[in-house]
Design a protein around this nucleic acid. Structure first.
Lengths: 121, 121
DNA sequence: CTTAAACATCGATAGTTGTCAATATATGAG
DNA sequence: CTCATATATTGACAACTATCGATGTTTAAG
């Protein structure tokens, strides 16, 4: 297409300022931060995992073993182990083995960090 | 099964206090509450939806129309509409149509409510 | 050594979900 | 009415996930 000569009237503006778009008052969350926060929230967005976290937190010293959880949760033991692994990988629990038992402990502040990030979205 | 006569030694205790199980210090979250909270978290646990919420909140009066979102998100328009519907159904946004445009507004306090519930798990 | 208990891992399956192209609906302009 | 624009809905598909049974691994007891 050949280049046109200079028109007699104004060029079409790049943005129509009278359109629907309202101005921004602050910056939105960045894409990497949104992906990071969504990964944490995905780990929490399951009723069984919320119950596991709550049951661990409700124990003395915020620590419980798998045998504390399987019976009240009423799901199969491999499923409990699966959910525990998700919560460890997401940084909400630590695992320590003593004898034949595996003890899971809530990482202090981990839930509050996500809670704070969520409130600031 | 017939009732046994009184044994000479103690019965097997219902719970072995020397086992792995630590005592509870408080009540854990109820199953219905866990399901309810997880539904809210599922709606938030997606990077695109977090960006949408943040972009809406970043606009004047916490309100934006679909045309404000489609271009910066760089995803197809039906996908944006889908995510907006999820956020409306979950109680984080309201929708109001003015002319051909649909305006979405953040429901004040909705994020803080989930944030507070999460911190108290 | 053998056995049992506690827990993790594997493999399969059914259900859910994020995405898009195509299409429908609604609103305003002319 | 016709046309264009903004948005919603539908249908399809690929990717992910919660669950379980079967099996592997580790530890302690005998």
């Amino acid at each position: 297409m050949p280049v046109a000569t200079a028109p007699a009237i104004e060029l079409i503006p790049l943005r129509d300022l009278a359109a629907c778009c309202a101005p921004l008052t602050r910056a939105a969350i960045s894409t990497p931060n949104a992906e990071s926060l969504s990964r944490s929230l995905k780990a929490l967005a399951d009723p069984t995992r919320l119950r596991i976290l709550s049951m661990v937190a409700a124990h003395d010293d915020a620590e419980a073993c798998v045998c504390d959880l399987t019976d009240p949760l009423d799901i199969a033991q491999p499923t409990v182990s699966h959910h525990l692994k998700v919560l460890v990988d997401a940084g909400f629990l630590t695992r320590s083995k003593r004898g034949t038992w595996a003890y899971y402990r809530l990482i202090p502040g981990s839930l509050d960090t996500v809670s704070g990030l969520l409130a600031s979205v």
